[in-house]
Design a protein around this nucleic acid. Structure first.
Lengths: 332, 332
DNA sequence: CTGTTAGCGCCTTCAC
DNA sequence: GTGAAGGCGCTAACAG
């Protein structure tokens, strides 16, 4: 910066101002400075800026998986909401593993983010302490935790899956199965299973029609294998709901390969409204949860909270429920 | 850090050492320090550490899209390769837009990454200058640029698509079409189209069987629409190759909806070996390009280059071609 | 194995 | 609108 200053015939302080959006520098001086910057190929060292200004200029977001359009849409929503703020979004993928979430959060916090967004409401005690002690706003997404850390933007996975099963009941299905993952890594998946179990109990439907295997992320292949197992164990099942559209798609193609008519012999419903659900043949019934809306709401809330914090205030914790919607297509 | 030091009865410097993996501190002292760290909820400020040590501890990777398993697998490969290095990987998505790639790269460089990985070999002149002037190792991936910035890990998209068309010719197809995007945003997509055009010219097949519309990212829906257009314009086409498996899948489901037999009436091949290509019915013929292998090779190469740089040396530019493979399944 | 000193590159604060 | 002084929190370098 000193080199640039010398070349432009000003002080380093003036260069610093010229490189800020709102720096009070005359147009003539700024032009001279920008020319020097360009000639020298100078790139501001934000690391030093962060240290002296105590503003890192970024927020961290932790999502379970990059390669899941639900979460990457959420990330795009956050990016869009933060566009005007000047804050950069730094993403980390936890691979559905709490321990990795913890390590990643700590790595982010060492770089002093001005806010942090996490997925779900189920975190290790250490992570909760870390986030609460970080002194920056926190938003939990994709869930409605009973004991939130601070802000929340999400929906009830239990409620959404429960509503789907009730709808299938209305449509006349009487022996409804569930395909999902084993293990508790995917806490939203576990909540959806709980919603399924609550619904079949309420409706007096036969219990136990559950195939749970494999760890998150549950993929298309899982759905294929789980479907085969389901029909082997419970040949009378007339509809299956799946933890996500990906496994629902795998289940459906398995039916097609085996010559089981969908929805004639067996109905299938997914969760998440992925592109494959809209495009496949027949098209999948599913639950749409507006992932980009979650991201935009979370980003906007975090930004308001950061603005409050910069002004020395503190935004009271907010809860934003996001609506979901059952989308009936051709597989039911 | 001073607070921690006081509590542990040592100097700040000793705390700093205790928090590094290889710091020369006695076990007894370290234990006392870690206890104080825990009690105070202290989190190291890496921003200050970066400033004084001149090591930011992260590398930047720019990919076109997060929600594309090819690129997210590449990212996972890079992460795996960098695991032992202690470097954190920070991802940025360019959405296939050069201007956004440029902005993102500059934002990353302001944070002083120790290395940078970009996708493709086609960048704005300003970005090239920026990367060359950054003084850190650069790896270009997913392509074999004729004029690389420094290191390269990739394959020829032209060659891979050309090989696919030649294989279809061997199988007996004589009127082969191409479905892809319009515009040049997706430079790899443009290269694949060039490979298709080279092949049909070489083989003396009828030219012009190309439907190009829509901007990247080309999705399943694009494939459906493009397929309809293809059959309207060129009803004699007996095989289509697609810029990616996603559009190939959309094309196939469109055929199923319209009652066009695949592969009986029309054969379909995709590109990228996405999960949907392995799982759909019938299964898609495609080109597999080992995205995780690209990521691991790129990450390993970058790490060697960073190690050399830290030792005051400089690794000569390397080119790593990654093999691709045609996978014949049920749609051809 | 531990401590002291100095400085990383920028921005806050104050002065003019 | 511009400049000077000082310090952000840490680590390199050197000393013991």
């Amino acid at each position: 910066m000193t080199d640039v200053a010398k070349r432009a015939g000003v002080s380093a302080m003036t260069v610093s101002r010229a490189l800020k959006a709102d720096g009070a520098v005359s147009d003539k001086t700024r032009l001279r400075i920008l020319k020097a910057v360009d000639e020298l190929g100078y790139v501001l060292d934000q690391t030093a800026g962060t240290l002296s200004s105590k503003r890192s200029g970024f927020v961290a977001a932790l999502i379970p998986s990059l390669n899941n359009s639900n979460f990457s849409d959420t990330a795009r929503g956050m990016e869009r909401a933060l566009e005007q703020s000047g804050l950069q979004l730094l993403l980390g993928a936890t691979d559905y593993v709490q321990e990795k979430e913890e390590r990643l959060a700590e790595a982010m916090l060492r770089r002093r983010p001005e806010g942090i967004i996490v997925t779900g409401g189920d975190h290790s005690p250490k992570l909760r302490r870390l986030l609460q002690g970080a002194g920056v706003p926190v938003v939990e997404t994709w869930d409605l935790p009973t004991d939130p850390i601070e802000h929340v933007v999400g929906f009830s996975n239990v409620g959404a899956m429960r509503a789907l099963v009730h709808r299938l009941y209305q449509l006349g299905y009487r022996e409804i199965g569930f395909l999902g993952g084993a293990g508790l890594r995917d806490t939203r998946g576990a909540a959806r299973r709980a919603g399924y179990e609550a619904a079949v109990a309420e409706l007096g439907l036969p219990l136990g029609r559950v195939i749970a295997f494999g760890e998150a992320p549950i993929s298309m292949d899982h759905g294929s294998i789980a479907m085969t197992q389901m029909m082997a164990h419970w040949p009378g099942v007339d509809a299956v709901v799946c933890v996500s559209d990906l496994s629902a798609f795998g289940a459906m193609t398995e039916c097609q390969r085996r010559g089981w008519a969908v929805p004639g012999q067996i109905a299938i419903a997914g969760f998440g409204d992925f592109e494959v659900a809209r495009c496949c043949h027949p098209r999948l019934t599913t639950v749409s949860v507006d992932p980009m809306g979650i991201g935009m709401a979370a980003g906007a809330l975090l930004w308001r909270s950061i603005e409050a914090m910069r002004a020395g205030a503190r935004l009271a914790a907010e809860q934003h429920p996001i609506p979901y919607q059952i989308i009936e297509r051709e597989t039911t």
